[in-house]
Design a protein around this nucleic acid. Structure first.
Lengths: 153, 153
DNA sequence: TATGAAATAATATAGTT
DNA sequence: AACTATATTATTTCATA
């Protein structure tokens, strides 16, 4: 699978506005609507484009706070790991979770309505997952940049 | 500004698929197409919905690696800060950057093509921004969860 | 002030070359 | 890949609650 210059232009346009009319995308890619329509379909089928999402303002939905929680597991038994990961998947306030290098095992990104809510998420929910040993919170003071757009060079 | 149950259902449907036809969104919200179309417009105008983006598979675009870089600034002069933040905004491999609590000043999320590229981004670019003192990299081994969908309860 | 139904306008897709 | 025709979808209008 290879992306040519047309595909890149199409993806670039959609990254600006995923609901941009095909004709407009076509104009930017110097193509007509038909091949653009077909290429978008192909990119979806091939799994380059996985879906489309609205970009929402967290604050307007009541999420004023944002934190990264570093977590260590007690043992690293399969049981502990799968239980932890299940808990993560089931928690709607966890918007991202990565297994990472360094002295902590996981980096978990959470959103919260306020300080109390954040405290509830970390102290009442995350630390209480069986197998969790250590938790360190990094609270976001300010978001300097947050983009989902990927470079296409 | 207040979101009612209809707005929530509409946003919920769009979070599943931002290109879902209005008629289908309407069905899920138990409304007809007309008010749904207007409500979406209103949510956009009010800044609840900021835009629409494709969800892309980073790997298919050649980004195999993913890291969080913790950064300390030397002094905290306005000059240092604004220079740093300008560099962050100008770097397309930085997909997120937050000013955070704790012993590091910033948490920077970067994507990279491979280890060499990651090294280039951190050692050749980020550490060389004037004012940057200390850099610690946390490399993502596995992404357990990554959603942009916000809870709407 | 907000809805639903119908009409119109815009847009996407399929067929043909 | 483009052009044209068709189908799908969005939006506007209007009557109404």
């Amino acid at each position: 699978m290879h992306l040519d210059e047309f595909d890149r232009k199409i993806i670039g346009a959609l990254q600006e506005d995923a609901r941009m009319p095909v004709a407009q995308v076509a104009e930017r890619a110097a193509l007509s609507a038909t091949p653009v329509s077909r290429r978008i379909k192909r990119l979806e089928d091939e799994g380059v484009i996985l879906g489309y999402q609205p970009v929402l303002d967290p604050r307007r939905l009541g999420f004023e706070l944002d934190a990264y929680v570093l977590i260590n597991l007690d043992g690293h038994s399969d049981d502990n790991i799968s239980r932890f990961e299940r808990a993560i998947h089931g928690n709607p306030y966890v918007i991202a979770c990565h297994a990472v290098t360094g002295d902590m095992d996981y980096l978990v990104h959470v959103i919260a309505r306020d300080v109390e809510h954040l405290s509830q998420i970390t102290l009442k929910t995350l630390v209480r997952i069986p197998g969790v040993r250590d938790v360190k919170s990094i609270i976001v003071l300010e978001t300097i940049k947050e983009t989902r757009a990927m470079p296409l060079e």
